[in-house]
Amino acid sequence: MHEEDNRPEGDKVGREEILNKARELAAIIARSEEAETFRKAEAKIDQNGHIQTLINAIKKKQKEIVAFESLGNTTMVGKIDQEIAVLQKELDDIPLVREYQQLQVDMNDLLQSTVGAVKDIVSAHLELERS
């Protein structure tokens, strides 16, 4: 018997049960220290007027690029691309933004390592069953 579900060894589980367990795991990850730190940094980013101004300016410039591309105006596209690069550098040079970007990497690493662990464990179980 499995202690966690009182199911006899060898009983099969359905897709819905697997998805429910995945939801439980997702909730655990969402409550992790990494996720909490990420949410706090995201809130700081959202509340920072200067950062939001830069983000909005970049988005506006990206829309301008799309418009000029549709007109075939490569000169303006190049000019606006340079303006975006300047805005992006200013944004990237803000310590809070760099911290947020690092936290995004950390969260992605946590998710990727979780997916990798599940994959490795399932593969190991399948190998054992074949033996």
Rank of each mutant, 00 (worst) to 15 (best):
H2W: 08
H2Q: 12
E4P: 02
R7P: 00
R7S: 06
R7W: 05
P8Y: 06
E9K: 13
G10A: 12
G10Y: 12
G10E: 10
K12N: 08
K12W: 00
V13D: 03
G14P: 06
E16Q: 13
E17Q: 11
E17L: 05
I18T: 06
L19K: 10
N20S: 09
N20T: 07
A22D: 00
R23E: 08
E24I: 07
L25S: 05
L25D: 03
A26D: 06
I28Q: 00
I29Q: 00
I29T: 02
A30P: 00
S32P: 10
S32K: 14
E33C: 05
E34C: 12
E34I: 15
A35Q: 07
E36I: 13
E36H: 13
T37Y: 11
F38Y: 14
F38T: 01
F38V: 01
F38E: 04
R39L: 07
K40E: 08
A43T: 15
I45N: 01
I45K: 01
I45A: 02
N48Q: 09
I51D: 04
Q52H: 03
T53H: 10
I55M: 10
N56C: 05
A57Q: 15
I58S: 00
K59I: 03
K61D: 04
Q62E: 14
E64K: 03
E64N: 05
E64D: 09
E64I: 01
V66P: 04
S70H: 11
L71A: 05
L71D: 02
L71R: 12
G72I: 09
N73M: 01
N73K: 08
T74K: 15
T74D: 09
V77H: 01
V77S: 02
G78T: 06
D81V: 00
Q82P: 02
V86L: 13
V86T: 13
V86C: 06
Q88D: 02
Q88S: 00
K89H: 11
E90R: 07
L91F: 11
D92R: 07
D93N: 15
D93M: 08
D93W: 04
D93S: 12
I94V: 12
I94E: 00
I94Q: 03
I94M: 06
P95N: 00
P95Q: 06
L96T: 11
V97Y: 02
R98L: 11
R98I: 09
R98M: 14
E99N: 03
Y100H: 07
Y100C: 02
Q101V: 11
Q101S: 10
Q101L: 10
Q101A: 11
L103P: 01
Q104G: 07
Q104I: 08
V105F: 10
V105D: 00
M107D: 05
N108I: 09
N108R: 15
D109G: 07
D109L: 14
L110A: 06
L110C: 05
L111N: 12
S113R: 15
S113Y: 12
S113Q: 15
V115R: 13
V115M: 10
V115H: 05
G116E: 09
G116R: 15
A117Q: 15
K119N: 11
K119F: 09
I121V: 07
I121N: 04
V122Q: 01
S123N: 15
S123H: 13
S123A: 15
H125R: 08
H125F: 07
L126I: 14
L126G: 04
L126S: 06
L128C: 03
E129H: 12
